[in-house]
């Protein structure tokens, strides 16, 4: 193990770790900046199931949407309230999307992996965001 601590090796390690941390900081800055720039009005909530849009609702109007499963039952209950969105109920075992709480910024999303349901908030600058993300 001693040869793993020679200065040359340490330098490569530090370079790679610094690069990884820098990318992480870049991501953090990107997410924070895109939040600060997004206006809170005129946002829409898009609900998708299995890659298909099942509902598009305005964020500023309170509403409840039940996502239907293949057997006709409700898999996820999406609630829009006071400009925020949260998952009220989900029939999946992990309940991660319910625990995620409320989202309200453009670009935020609630994702239920077991049911393949995605709830996301999008705004007017979504095309610009998409271009950056790609």
């Amino acid at each position: 193990m001693r040869d793993h601590k020679t200065p040359l090796k340490k330098r490569y390690d530090l370079l790679l770790l610094a690069a990884l941390v820098l990318v992480g900081l870049g991501l953090t800055a990107f997410v924070l900046l895109s939040r600060m720039n997004s206006a809170s009005d005129g946002l829409t909530v898009t609900i998708r199931q299995d890659n298909e849009v099942v509902a598009t609702l305005p964020l500023d109007e309170d509403a409840t949407y039940a996502v239907q499963g293949e057997d006709g039952g409700t898999t996820n209950l999406v609630v829009i309230e006071d400009g925020t969105v949260h998952m009220e109920e989900a029939d999946c075992p992990d309940q991660l999307c319910v625990k995620q709480g409320k989202i309200s910024y453009a670009g935020d999303s609630l994702i239920c992996l077991p049911n393949r349901v995605v709830v996301e908030i999008s705004g007017e600058d979504e095309q610009a965001l998409d271009a950056v993300a790609k």
């Binding site: 992480g24 991501l27 953090t28 990107f30 997410v31 895109s34 998708r48 890659n51 670009g107 935020d108 999303s109 994702i111 393949r116 995605v118 996301e120 999008s122 979504e126 965001l129 998409d130 993300a133 790609k134």
Partner: peptide, 12 residues
């Protein structure tokens, strides 16, 4: 699988 590009928050 989810067909969305807007995962920057998760990636972070």
């Amino acid at each position: 699988l989810l067909g969305t590009w807007r995962v920057s928050y998760y990636l972070l």
